[in-house]
Computed example of a mutant assay.
Amino acid sequence: MEEWIKLAGDQGAAVMLAFFLVYRMERKLDTLIWTVQRQNEQLFSFSGRPGALKNSTHAKKP
């Protein structure tokens, strides 16, 4: 936390805010990518019989 405060003092609040927002956006993009990949796996594992999606394997979230 002290590093963030020092960075804000040295480089300015605008730069620190930009880094913080990029960090948050990256986390949300990682979650979105994981969700899309999981949906693709479920879609392609569907074999046409009822209940096939319920029995598909679920990947663990990183």
Rank of each mutant, 00 (worst) to 15 (best):
Q11I: 05
A52Y: 00
L7M: 08
P50E: 02
S56V: 02
K60T: 13
A13E: 06
A13P: 00
A18F: 06
K60I: 11
R49Q: 12
L29V: 06
R27Y: 05
F19E: 12
L21P: 02
K28I: 11
I33C: 09
A18T: 09
K6R: 14
A59E: 12
Q39I: 13
V36R: 14
I33E: 15
L7D: 13
I5F: 02
G51P: 01
A8M: 08
G9A: 05
K61M: 08
R38H: 12
E41P: 01
E41I: 05
G12T: 00
G9T: 06
T57P: 00
K28Y: 08
V15C: 03
A59W: 09
Q39C: 09
P62I: 10
R27D: 10
F44S: 05
I33N: 14
R49G: 03
Q39F: 14
A18I: 04
Y23L: 11
T35V: 10
G12Y: 01
L17F: 02
K60F: 07
K60N: 14
M1E: 04
R49V: 09
A14Y: 06
L17A: 04
F19Y: 11
L32G: 10
E2G: 02
L53Q: 03
E41V: 07
W34D: 15
A14I: 06
R24C: 09
F46G: 00
V22K: 11
L21Y: 07
T31H: 12
P62L: 12
F19V: 08
G48A: 03
D30V: 11
K28Q: 11
E2D: 03
L29I: 09
A8T: 10
V36T: 11
K54Q: 07
F20D: 10
T35H: 11
Q37R: 15
E41D: 14
A59C: 06
G9R: 15
